[in-house]
Amino acid sequence: MTTDLAVDAVGLTKRFGSLVAVDDISVQVAPGEVYGVLGPNGAGKTTFLRMLFGLIRPDAGTIRVFGRSWEKHGIATLDGVAGFIESPKFYPYLTGRQNLKGLALLDGGDARGRLEEVLEIVDLTQRADDKVGGYSYGMRQRLGVAASLLRDPRLLVLDEPANGLDPAGIRDMRALVKRLAGSGLTVLLSSHHMDEVEEICDNVTIMRRGEVAFHGTIADLRSMAPDPGYALATTDDPRAVALAGAHPAVTVVRGEGGLTVTGPQAAVSAYVGTLVAAGVGLLSFTPTRTPLEALFFMLTDEGVAA
């Protein structure tokens, strides 16, 4: 007995006039996994999700959701699927609870019976009777997740759920997605931030200008990542550069803003130890980009081949 993929998209292409928004991409999401679709703005992520939800039709390729397709099953393709494209919208003059009640009435089934449960899942129980107009952006995003969970979905689709959030909001959204994934729910999310998905996704597709720049696991991605870089300020930069000669695996470049150090983490640590032993004072030692962030920009940069 075979288990249908949660999402099985093959050869998808979508054009808007002369613009090819999505160019022959394939994405397979297994039940129970957290899958990330990454890319800069304009990479084609939202267009892909719109095709998944049936909001637009692909010019070529097929999409199956738990074995169902729009061509054969119509709206039933979305049975067991919930989520939002871009930012969720609510009536600002109604409370969070009232908005959810209205959506539950429209959805039917046992959605009304899940209202208190979903409010608790997204940590909005204490603010459920406040008007949505007074919610922060992060609270509205979490209310959007609550509205999606009313359907008790098997697949939750989130389009850049942390976009526009402050650091605390990003932390809360990341923790929420982790909890949902831990419950066995399949999650497909898009993002343009590598660190947003690094800790929670099993597999990722990185898009650039509508094409696939990378397809694979987070572990595969880490194996491709370049050495980490650090901004280094010392009390004696010329001597710090000279001492790097004893560490061939480390590269130290002197610029207007100070020193930039790159190399394997163990080699960089040994180099820093040499500086300390030599009496060179360290004023600051700051990561520039994480290795995965650096790789993300390499893969999606307009001047780099996919």
Rank of each mutant, 00 (worst) to 15 (best):
L295Y: 13
V253I: 09
R289P: 00
V20T: 15
D110F: 07
Y35I: 01
R15D: 09
I85P: 08
A305P: 05
T13E: 11
A246S: 14
E302P: 01
V276G: 04
L283N: 11
L188K: 01
E199V: 04
L19N: 08
S183Y: 01
S18P: 05
V252I: 04
I200Q: 03
V280N: 05
G36N: 02
V241P: 00
L156W: 00
Q98L: 13
S26F: 07
T13F: 06
K89H: 11
E86Y: 08
A278W: 07
V177F: 05
V118C: 11
A30L: 01
R50I: 03
G279W: 04
K14L: 13
F90M: 03
G216W: 13
H73I: 08
A244C: 10
R50Y: 01
V250R: 05
G164D: 12
D129P: 10
K89Q: 15
L295C: 14
M224F: 11
G182W: 01
G210H: 07
L259R: 01
G39A: 05
T286H: 12
G164C: 14
A305W: 10
I218R: 00
K14N: 09
H193S: 14
A294N: 08
M1S: 15
H215F: 12
V65W: 03
A168P: 02
G11Y: 07
L292K: 10
